[in-house]
């Protein structure tokens, strides 16, 4: 991209020179491939593609984009596609990244949904799905522990808030919107108070 006759240095200097931003079709393809690879979560693939392979973002930029995606409501990786696509190409970029990310799993889920509707009552399949469901619950439990660990360093109050959210929604089965209307402001106030 520059006229510097520095061919031998090109490799060493590569990380400093960001590659040109992807076109809309490249963006679509990249998110489509991430979605196809995403066994056990798309996020690691998103980081690998965007940061390591294509170098469209530095790790720092990626973390910031992901922080925004996590902060706002919605599935994290879906929001990430919107933030990333939007940053590069505005509304069209966001739509294209989102479309690439959603197309393969939507088709997959419709096919699996149709198979389940047709064969879900077969005794053998029911047994297999029962085993899958028990394992799936275990994987979620492991994620809960991983997510909860950083809270332990934050002191007592965040743990109380997390426990309140768990009991209200998981045990008492209160309405999610109402619970959040109470709990989110409370937790934010506690966080503000804790910082003083």
């Amino acid at each position: 991209m520059t006229d510097l006759p520095a061919a031998p240095l090109a490799e060493a200097a590569a990380p400093a020179v960001p590659p040109p931003p992807p076109s809309l079709s490249e963006l679509f393809r990249a998110f489509l491939l991430m979605a196809l690879h995403g066994f056990g979560g798309v996020l690691p693939w998103a980081r690998r593609t965007i940061v390591d392979d294509k170098r469209w973002m530095t790790p720092q930029e990626f973390n910031e984009a992901f922080a925004v995606a996590q902060f706002l409501p919605g599935a994290n990786v879906v929001n990430l596609a919107v933030v990333f696509g939007g940053r590069l190409h505005g509304a069209a970029g966001a739509a294209v990244a989102l479309g690439g990310l959603m197309l393969p799993p939507t088709v997959t889920m419709i096919v699996l949904g149709a198979l389940y509707a047709r064969f879900g009552d077969l005794a053998a399949l029911q047994r297999v799905l029962g085993g899958l469901a028990a394992a799936a619950a275990g994987l979620l439990a492991a994620m809960v522990i991983r997510m909860g660990q950083p809270l332990l360093r934050e002191g007592f109050l965040p743990l109380v808030v997390a426990a309140l959210a768990f009991v209200a929604i998981g045990v008492m089965r209160f309405s999610l919107p109402l619970t959040l209307l109470v709990l989110a402001p409370l937790s934010i106030a506690l966080a503000a108070w804790g910082r003083k």
Binding site: L140, M143, V144, V161, A162, F166, L183, A184
Partner: peptide
């Protein structure tokens, strides 16, 4: 902390 509690409730 709210999101951790909600995730735990989901699980």
């Amino acid at each position: 902390p709210v999101s951790v509690g909600l995730f735990a409730a989901g699980a």
